[in-house]
Amino acid sequence: MASPIYSTIFKRNSVFVPTVFLAAFSFSIGFDMVTSAWWDSHNRGKQWKDIRSKYIEQEE
């Protein structure tokens, strides 16, 4: 009757709370990656990291 997600994660609070903190940790990293990826693709060619290579090569 109970779903596998419920019985593995939610049933015990001692599992639930660490799962929440682990999720918070991985979420903050993942969210940062996703938004940064979108941000960089939205502003492609405008940011310093996009044009930096041009001036490094020029120096050599």
Binding site: I9, A23, A24
Partner: peptide
């Protein structure tokens, strides 16, 4: 509830 906790914690 867990998602609220995780988002709030981060």
């Amino acid at each position: 509830v867990g998602a609220l906790g995780a988002l709030g914690a981060s």
